[in-house]
Amino acid sequence: MVKRLKKFFAGTYLGLMLLFLYAPIVILIVYSFNQSKTLGNWTGFTFDWYVQLVQTPEIMDALAVTVSVAAISSVVSTLLGTYAAIGLYAMKRKTRVVYENISQLPMVNPDLVTGISLMLLFLFVGLKDGYTRLVIAHITFNLPYVIFSVMPKLRQSSDMLYEAALDLGCTPRQAIRKVVIPDIMPGIVSGLILAFTLSIDDFVISFFAGNGVDNLSMYIYASARRGVNPALSTIIFVPVVALLLVVNLRTIREEKNAEIQNRKVGLKN
């Protein structure tokens, strides 16, 4: 009885917390199918907000900017970051520590300071193109996350593989491409996904480093006072949640299988 009561309270608490975390988003998404312009007043189902969304050029432009900047910056930072990790890993400890500490700067730095420092640099060198500025800024803040996703995999993989490949006649470049990279692939993939989601979500750094070209976050910030089309929340949240669930559910299923396996073993004993 006490146990059941405990379970009930635990469930209620977790449920309330999930409600707290998701209610605002869910309400915004529900509201995007409402005919009425005011929240809390349901007058009927409609797709009008979505039609309007497609017909607002600023939103479509911002969407294109967000997705393309995320794609370009995540691919470039994954390439640069993977080779950087391989290179850093081969360095002497002392040199490596210096470079790794500098690499951590964008992670330690408040986003605000990173954004402003990049803004100062772009103004200093006279780079005006807003899109290029965004791409450079995003590559820069993604790089450390890629490096720190790849590094642990490099530590796990054996140096012998690389040397064996060289002994068997590979050039260093071939050895990296055909032996080292396949071995650390999981780290590279998670670095890429991390970089993509970070880039899609970024506001603060883009806001300061950018110049006239808006991504979705910047668009929302600029139009928050007069109101943002609620349909925007659906197209931002649904893909991200779906992506994260797909990535995570695989690990969960493995865990569940292991649990079932354990139970079976337990029964046999």
């Binding site: 290179g87 690499s103 690389y162």
Partner: peptide
């Protein structure tokens, strides 16, 4: 190869100097 492999970090180090270090120095 010891030297060669660390050279793979070259492009990144250049990037880091331009876009991480120099902006901080500007501040």
């Amino acid at each position: 190869f010891r030297i060669k492999r660390s050279l793979f970090a070259g492009p990144y180090i250049v990037w880091m100097a331009i876009f991480i270090l120099s902006p901080m120095l500007l501040i």
